[in-house]
Amino acid sequence: MNEKYAQAVKELLYKMADDLLILGHRNSEWTGIGPMLEEDISFSSMAQDKIGQSLALYQLLNNLGEAEPDTVAFTRNQQQFHNCQLVEYPIGEYDFSLMRHFLFDNAELLRYDMMMDSSYEPLAKLARKFKGELKYHKFHGDTFVMQLGKGTAESKKRMQDSLNFCWNLALGIFEESPYESTLINEAIWKGEAALKLRWLEAIEPILAEAGLTIPDSNTWKPVYGGRVGKHTENLQPLLEEMTEVFRVDPGAEW
């Protein structure tokens, strides 16, 4: 593997792993307080999947010479995290968490679908595994967005408001990497712009059927920065909470 290829793969793995770790932790904040038991379990299960998937990606980074997964997950500061800003926002009300999950996981399923034939074989293997798991995340998000979009006037308004709030943040998922041309030319994957097109095609009919309106494309202002370590005031407190126990005794054997 040449140096440029390795750099491109590492940057890609970091941002994907960080998205999963951070959204996994956010989803886990619903444990015990979900609006109904099934939703409590669903968000907790998706949290578990995402944190497990992030571990597998950090493990690949470790194989490429980066630090151990626990060190990477628990000792970096916020400028070293490459997650998009969408995933770091607090869980807010259920409508926000649901809409974020719907927008993110539709992209996530397609992302790994596109990576199943990656020239970086370890990633292709993980992609095949993750895809089977992510189908359920998409299924869950689609089902509830549909139900609440078609529900009461209040549920519809809440879903529309959340869609409006999430939209530019969700476009930030697709912030391009400085290595984008290497990623594409080396067939590591087809890149963020291609993913964004597939994502729009996937979510448009679902939102339309749910009676929800995507903001006018003239108003779109993707929120970028997350991929290069620029974050909102929401990330650092989360990192501090996530690492509180770890920091008590970083070398502890569990």
Binding site: E38, I41, S42, S44, S45, M46, Q48, D49, E133, Y136, F139, H140
Partner: peptide, 13 residues
């Protein structure tokens, strides 16, 4: 199907 997520990751309810 009541929910695709159950008491463990491998089960639906």
């Amino acid at each position: 199907l009541t929910t695709p997520f159950g008491p463990t990751l491998c089960r639906s309810m």
